[in-house]
Simulated assay, not measured.
Amino acid sequence: MHAIDRLSAGEFDDGVKELAALLVDAVDDGASVGFLAPFDHEAAAAWWRAQAPAVADGRLMVWVSRDDARINASVSLALAAKPNARHRAEIVKLMVHREARGRGLSRALLAIAEQAALEAGADLLLLDTETGSTAEHVYLTGGWTRYGIVPAYAGSPDGTLRDCSFFYKRLTAGSA
């Protein structure tokens, strides 16, 4: 089993540098996580720092896995803010460092985020990912339902427009 911890607001602030390194690794490896190359550590840290208010007030939960005291994987759960959407949440920024892949970290992180969603009253999860990516395979084999593909939805890190698959997962007690 992997040691995965939810970051408190203070731990999040202290972990921004390592989270930025993880995000830079993901973009450098071609992951379509919302950023274009070149993407440097300073820009990644700024993006993470901008998430601090949401982490502090609980709208965004962030979990990390560590290897030799370094963050090697992360996932975030964004709770819906609209009153009519409190039953749903979004999985965002599931990332595993290139050196830590193949250890089941993606599935372990997703399981923890899914359980936390249920505990927060969200039984419908949503996410999107690049069609044909390794991440898409994780979701397709992990009980997620693809409900559509949008052509040329987002740019990959090199700017090439890529199709995006949209997924949902209904959660019930014991399913997470």
Rank of each mutant, 00 (worst) to 15 (best):
M1Y: 09
H2S: 15
H2N: 14
A3W: 03
A3E: 15
I4W: 04
D5E: 15
R6E: 14
L7V: 10
S8G: 08
G10H: 13
V16I: 15
K17E: 15
L19F: 10
L22R: 02
L23I: 08
V24S: 03
A26C: 09
A26E: 05
V27W: 04
D29K: 08
A31V: 11
S32N: 12
V33I: 15
V33R: 01
A37N: 13
P38F: 11
P38V: 11
A43K: 13
A43Q: 13
A44G: 08
A46N: 06
W47M: 07
R49W: 03
A50K: 09
A50S: 15
Q51V: 05
Q51L: 12
P53D: 02
A54T: 02
V55I: 10
D57S: 09
G58Y: 08
G58T: 06
R59D: 11
R59M: 12
L60R: 03
L60Y: 05
M61H: 11
V62H: 01
S65H: 14
S65W: 05
S65R: 09
R66T: 10
R66K: 14
D67H: 13
D67Q: 15
D68Y: 06
I71Q: 00
A73C: 06
A73F: 01
S74D: 00
V75L: 03
L79V: 00
A81S: 11
A81T: 10
A81V: 11
K82L: 11
K82N: 03
P83F: 08
N84T: 10
R86T: 09
H87S: 05
H87D: 00
R88N: 05
E90Q: 10
I91M: 08
L94C: 08
M95W: 00
V96W: 01
V96Y: 02
H97G: 09
E99Y: 07
R103V: 05
L105N: 06
R107M: 12
A108F: 08
L110T: 03
I112G: 00
A113L: 11
E114Y: 08
A120F: 04
G121E: 07
G121A: 05
A122K: 02
A122W: 01
L127Q: 00
D128F: 01
T129A: 10
T129P: 01
E130R: 14
S133H: 02
E136M: 13
H137L: 13
T141L: 13
G142S: 14
G143R: 04
W144G: 00
W144E: 04
T145C: 14
Y147V: 13
G148F: 10
I149N: 10
P151W: 09
G155M: 13
G159Y: 07
G159H: 04
L161C: 02
R162F: 05
R162T: 08
D163P: 00
C164L: 06
C164I: 02
Y168H: 14
Y168T: 11
L171W: 04
L171Y: 07
L171Q: 01
A173F: 12
